[in-house]
């Protein structure tokens, strides 16, 4: 069963790692991805980013994405945490952990989870700049291409 959380507060990578692996002797590798707020955006310096989501849909959407990863790989656990609200440059936004008996599954599932999350989970980023300029981030074709790598034939 995946651990799926949407929260305003920062997450504790060490605590999440410990919770995922506590008492487990069957895990052989854990893949981890942490997404953080990058200061430079299109040559402008970001003051902060605000993350909005669709509360009634978000948790179900993340659980569905995690279930799809569990269907494709033999995972021994996975964790998906996404933050919402106002986040400043350097702040962590998203955490993906995937545990498996072997590294191939752990690393592949980690890549799959973040790629699908970026194109399927109902979150939207608004960038705010020091000069008062603010705009909603547009979806990137590169993210669609990254997610498409995981489409199954047929």
């Amino acid at each position: 069963m995946a651990r799926v959380v949407v929260q305003e507060a920062a997450f504790d990578l060490g605590a999440e790692f410990a919770a995922l692996t506590a008492g487990r002797r069957d895990i052989g590798g854990i893949g981890a991805f942490v997404g953080t707020v990058r200061e430079l955006s299109g040559g402008q310096r970001l003051e902060a980013m605000t993350l909005e989501h669709y509360p009634a849909m978000t948790a179900a959407s993340l659980s569905h994405i995690a279930a799809e990863a569990e269907r494709r790989w033999d995972l021994l656990g996975c964790t998906l945490i996404h933050r919402i609200g106002r986040l400043e440059p350097g702040a962590p936004i998203v955490l993906v952990l995937a545990a498996a008996a072997h590294r191939d599954a752990a690393l592949a599932a980690t890549g799959f989870l973040i790629d699908w999350l970026k194109t399927r989970a109902p979150f939207w980023k608004k960038e705010c700049f020091a000069d008062g300029d603010a705009h909603w981030v547009e979806a990137r074709a590169e993210d669609d291409a990254a997610a498409a790598r995981w489409s199954e034939p047929g």
């Binding site: 970026k118 399927r120 979150f123």
Partner: peptide, 25 residues
């Protein structure tokens, strides 16, 4: 709360959400 397209049927009581392509992560 499920992604839908133009042909998705609607009935009374449904919750319909409109939004831009997602940009989380």
């Amino acid at each position: 709360q499920e992604f839908a397209g133009p042909d998705t049927p609607l009935a009374a009581g449904d919750e319909v959400a409109f939004f831009p392509p997602v940009t989380g992560g």
